[in-house]
Nucleic acid binder design. Sequence first.
DNA 1: GCCAACGTTGGC
DNA 2: GCCAACGTTGGC
Length: 142
Amino acid sequence: MPSYWLIKVEPSVYPFAKLLEEGSTEWSGVRNFQARNNLRAMAPGDLALYYHSQEGKAVVGVAQITSAPYPDPTAPGEDWTAVKVGPVCTLKQEVTLAQVKAIKGLAKFPLVTHSRLSVAKVTSEHFKQILALGKTTLPKRR
DNA sequence: GCCAACGTTGGC
DNA sequence: GCCAACGTTGGC
């Protein structure tokens, strides 16, 4: 059973489209303990909802974790963590923050409860719910 | 651009 | 160990 996550980024920094284009990227630069600890709990094959903060304010895609956590090379000598991330699929319909907030079952979704946390754990129920709102089913895994 | 929320820092 | 000050994030 994979774990489910929510990762946030400003689209002006690294939009989901760029992840699709490049096929893989390093998720580094996280400087928050809680977020770092979440990165450390990730494993290859875990899935992540990809949220555009600021300009966008919507979940736009699904990504997958493709590496084990490793020391963040952008902070040499310091105790931070990075992982590698790849694209899985684009949501057929993006799921906006306003939508999430309007749904009672998502009151505990991290975008609502921890709006500033850039890497958060998501329950499989919430994950499925977001996919359903996005009218999206995951491609078959191999 | 403003401001609320929240995490971190540092003085005591 | 508390708490005020400060910086950052992100929604509006």
